[in-house]
Design a protein around this nucleic acid. Structure first.
Length: 267
DNA sequence: TCCTTATGTACAA
DNA sequence: TGTACCTAAGGAC
């Protein structure tokens, strides 16, 4: 679930809560902060990369990071009894929102929130993003472009799926290093991420396959990739590339699974 | 019922 | 580089 598009979508969806909000932590780890916030209004929500901020009162923020396992579920009132894994439940008269399994769920100040923004790179989903800030680091780096795209200090919000897919879409070998990425290539990758990730927010899933490469257009039987979106390479190891038929490859890179087509992504 | 896996990150050595 | 953390789904038995 959680790459940047999921978090931006959540920032929008949390806004369904209006008026005084009941705040609780059935699981217990956020109980003290929940008691402080109980009855306050949710006035603002914001996302930067994979970080979500829920604003209460003047300068109270709940900082949420889903990590690998975190999930948020929405429902209509009345809220059912919470199970013991619900870290944070927000509820108004009409609906409730449950958060489970986050890496981070903490009450922070404006200053602490600023510090989080400061350590994140530009986010393709934010209007204030400056892609040249990311390119400055990339163009000076001997690290692989696959690793750079996953580094949230370089670019915020891209995860393992968008990384694999955007590199495929631009024919870029994931093992090329940052210094080998030309300005025009970066411009194209960034523009593509802006478009793909906005579509991800709209649809709440990741689709990256161009219309001309869909199974229908290619005369192949329809398929559904098992993570809920249509993709070229992510988790398609040993399956034939949708374009050239070569087996998709996979490898460990910095403890994550990398996927690519060795023929379509040469240099 | 157990084991593996996952769209993530931080910290220790 | 390895490990810890958090949860739930799916597959092997």
């Amino acid at each position: 679930m959680p790459e940047g598009h999921t978090i931006h979508r959540l920032a929008l969806d949390y806004r369904r809560l209006t008026g005084p909000v009941r705040v609780s932590s059935p699981q217990g780890k956020f109980s003290d902060a929940a008691a402080l916030l109980d009855g306050a209004e949710l006035t603002r929500t914001e996302a930067h990369g994979k970080h979500l901020f829920l604003g209460f009162r003047d300068s109270d923020w709940v900082h949420i990071h889903l990590g690998l396992f975190g999930k948020v579920t929405f429902g209509d009132a009345p809220a059912p009894p919470a199970t013991d894994t619900v870290r944070l439940r927000l509820a108004d008269t009409a609906s409730y929102v449950d958060l489970r399994g986050p890496t981070t769920c903490a009450l922070i100040t404006d200053a602490e929130k600023s510090a989080v923004h400061a350590r994140l790179g530009p986010d393709p989903l934010r209007g204030d993003a400056d892609p040249s800030v990311a390119y400055r680091r990339i163009s000076r780096s001997r690290t692989t472009v696959a690793a750079l795209l996953m580094d949230q200090k370089v670019i915020a919000g891209v995860g393992n799926v968008y990384r694999a897919e955007v590199l495929f879409r631009h024919g870029i070998d994931p093992y090329r290093v940052g210094r080998e990425i030309r300005p025009a290539e970066w411009d194209a990758v960034w523009a593509d991420l802006v478009e793909l990730m906005h579509e991800g927010v709209r649809n709440n899933r990741i689709d990256t396959v161009r219309p001309e490469h869909t199974p229908e257009a290619m005369g192949r039987p329809p398929r559904v990739d098992d993570h809920g979106g249509e993709v070229y390479v992510y988790r398609r190891a040993t399956l034939p590339c949708h374009i050239c038929g070569t087996e998709i490859r996979t490898a460990d890179l910095a403890a994550r699974n990398l996927f690519w087509c060795p023929r379509c992504q040469r240099h």
